[in-house]
């Protein structure tokens, strides 16, 4: 289990654990105050399964699908459903590319990652019936997807492109502060949701930063 994805998920589990209180505080301000606790529970379980070899280590499509199932069952709340679905759809996108490769049409790893990421973001938008600007994880994920695609156009490496995606997600998360929430429990607050950073956008940025850092590690093979 030394590929990029297990490495990422383990790193993400550590980052989420560190950010547990911060995410929970952000959620307490405009939601139900459990985002950090929930996500930590799910990623801790993911890391435990990876360490116990209780999660497929490859191919990447299977890693993502299994990770999605774990998150869906353990995180709870909207974030569990949304992240779980995102991971599953990313896995499905890779599985489709695997089939194409078997048929003699290989795709470069940067483009594979782009397809997986795009499917994940689409899944969040579709399940949440949300668009950017509504103070949700999409406000981090959509700019990240655009930054990744732009980097790909320029021929940037996977590590460089994921770093740009992470930076775009972090900037996007910050831009949720002045937004009015129109989705989820935060929308119950109406105008009072303005002035707070969205916890889902914050956790999306954390996950993408962990991905960029995992991809930047020269000791990690970056096959996806």
């Amino acid at each position: 289990m030394d590929g990029l994805l297990p490495r990422w998920l383990r790193l993400a589990a550590g980052r989420v654990a560190e950010a547990r209180e911060r995410l929970t505080d952000l959620d307490a301000a405009i939601g139900d105050g459990d985002h950090g606790i929930n996500l930590d529970r799910g990623f801790r379980e993911l890391a435990r399964r990876i360490d116990a070899d209780d999660l497929p280590g490859e191919p990447p499509a299977a890693v993502l699908a299994a990770a999605g199932r774990v998150l869906m069952g353990t995180v709870g709340g909207a974030s569990g459903a949304l992240y779980g679905r995102a991971f599953q759809r990313a896995g499905a996108a890779l599985a489709e590319l695997d089939q194409r490769e078997v048929a003699g049409y290989p795709v470069a790893r940067e483009a594979r990652a782009a397809a997986a990421f795009a499917s994940a973001v689409d899944a969040v938008a579709a399940l949440g019936r949300a668009t950017p600007g509504e103070k949700t994880m999409l406000d981090a994920l959509v700019p990240a997807r655009a930054a990744y695609a732009a980097a790909l156009e320029e021929g940037v490496t996977l590590a460089g492109a994921t770093a740009r995606a992470a930076a775009a997600a972090e900037a996007g998360a910050q831009r949720t502060i002045p937004l009015l929430a129109t989705k989820g429990r935060a929308s119950y607050l109406g105008e009072r949701s303005i002035g707070h950073l969205d916890p889902g956008a914050a956790s999306s940025a954390i996950l993408l930063r962990a991905l960029a850092d995992a991809a930047a590690d020269p000791a990690v093979p970056v096959d996806v």
Partner: peptide, 14 residues
């Protein structure tokens, strides 16, 4: 009702 590990939340397998 609740997650697979017994916390407040929802779980699609359940």
């Amino acid at each position: 009702g609740g997650t697979a590990v017994g916390n407040l939340g929802t779980s699609s397998p359940a």
